[in-house]
Simulated scan of single mutants.
Amino acid sequence: MERTAARNLGSVMIASAPTGNGRPSLAANLVEARYSLTTGNRSVPAVPPDGLTGLVLIEGRIWWLGPQSRPWRPERSGVEVVGVRIAMHWGQAIAGEPLNNFLDARIAVEELPGWPTEPISENRLLPGTPADHLTAMVNDRASHLAVDPWIPRIAGRIRAGEHSVAELADISGLSVRQLHRRCLTYFGLPPSILMRISRLHRAAARVPRLGNPDLSNLAVATGYFDQSHLNRETRQLAGEPPTKAFAVASNVRFVQYPPSGRSVALDSTR
């Protein structure tokens, strides 16, 4: 299986919201967000990891994005991208293999176990928007699958950030090492990294769009030791200091706005 690093997009930290028609989505607990954008150049802020997987339509081809461990910038500007972000607890089931096998990878969807074997291109999309088609693909895939109830429970606790890794292991009746292995399988990353990613998203969610936050208070409110800790974590995960990374944040988590002037069209489900 050829696996290409997803450097021209990676994943986008995006908002969650209702579907465009106002009705509950069939994927209400499966697809966290739908988005479309035009990639900017490498001078724009990096795209941070979000702990999720997803499907994207890029230049007429549908790809599956594995979990992301580092900030990325687009390789090329002006590329049209449509995508859906899959809920954290569904990623491994949709992929069909342990998610750590797909870390930082972009894979043609037909190469995933159990998916159609012929390339799925834009000219094979069903009626409706490309995001509708991607959502339908994920729904169809999930309709044949089941998820262990432990997975969404632990995913929720990781994202809430209310427990240490040791406490999460104890709650789960596992050793820390067993929890580490399970997180690699189901989420692609160790629990400590997932918790850091989630904490950064919680910090971003508190920043009004184009606001000028008090970083010291923001750090304390979102579980960092102090402002220096927030600065280090933001540089490592977002590739920028907080003042720059949060400058493009909205009150619905990070959204990377392209410099072309085109707005990001979001249609999220949570």
Score class of each variant (00 low, 15 high):
M1H: 00
E2N: 13
R3G: 12
R3E: 09
A6L: 08
R7Q: 05
R7V: 15
N8K: 10
N8G: 01
S11N: 02
V12F: 03
I14E: 13
I14P: 02
A15D: 14
A17W: 10
A17R: 06
G20C: 02
N21T: 14
G22K: 05
R23T: 08
L26N: 02
A27Y: 01
N29A: 08
V31L: 04
V31C: 08
R34M: 07
R34H: 02
R34V: 06
T38V: 14
T39R: 14
G40W: 12
G40V: 14
G40T: 07
N41D: 13
R42N: 13
V44K: 09
P45I: 04
P45L: 09
P45Q: 11
P45A: 06
A46Q: 05
G51M: 10
V56T: 04
R61E: 15
R61V: 08
W63V: 07
W63D: 12
W64F: 11
P67H: 10
S69K: 01
S69C: 10
R70D: 12
P74T: 12
E80I: 02
E80K: 14
V82L: 11
V84P: 07
I86A: 10
I86Q: 02
I86G: 12
M88E: 15
G91H: 05
G91V: 01
Q92Y: 06
Q92G: 10
Q92I: 03
N101K: 12
F102S: 08
L103V: 14
D104M: 08
R106N: 00
V109M: 03
E110T: 00
P113K: 01
P116R: 14
P116K: 14
T117R: 11
E118F: 03
E122H: 01
R124T: 11
L125P: 07
L126H: 05
P127S: 06
P130Y: 01
P130T: 00
A131E: 09
A131F: 04
H133F: 09
M137C: 06
N139I: 05
A142S: 03
S143Y: 10
A146Y: 00
D148F: 07
P149I: 10
R153W: 14
R153S: 09
G156K: 09
I158G: 06
I158S: 12
A166R: 15
A166W: 11
G173L: 07
G173S: 15
L174D: 12
S175M: 04
Q178E: 15
R181H: 11
Y186R: 12
I193S: 00
R196Q: 14
R199S: 13
L200R: 02
H201E: 09
A205P: 02
V207F: 01
V207I: 07
P208E: 09
P208A: 07
G211V: 00
P213I: 04
D214F: 00
S216F: 02
A219C: 08
T222I: 04
Y224N: 09
Y224H: 08
S228R: 14
N231S: 04
Q236M: 10
Q236N: 05
L237M: 08
E240Y: 05
E240P: 02
P241E: 15
P242A: 00
A245C: 01
A247L: 00
V248F: 07
A249S: 13
S250H: 10
N251T: 10
V252K: 14
R262Y: 10
L266W: 02
T269S: 05
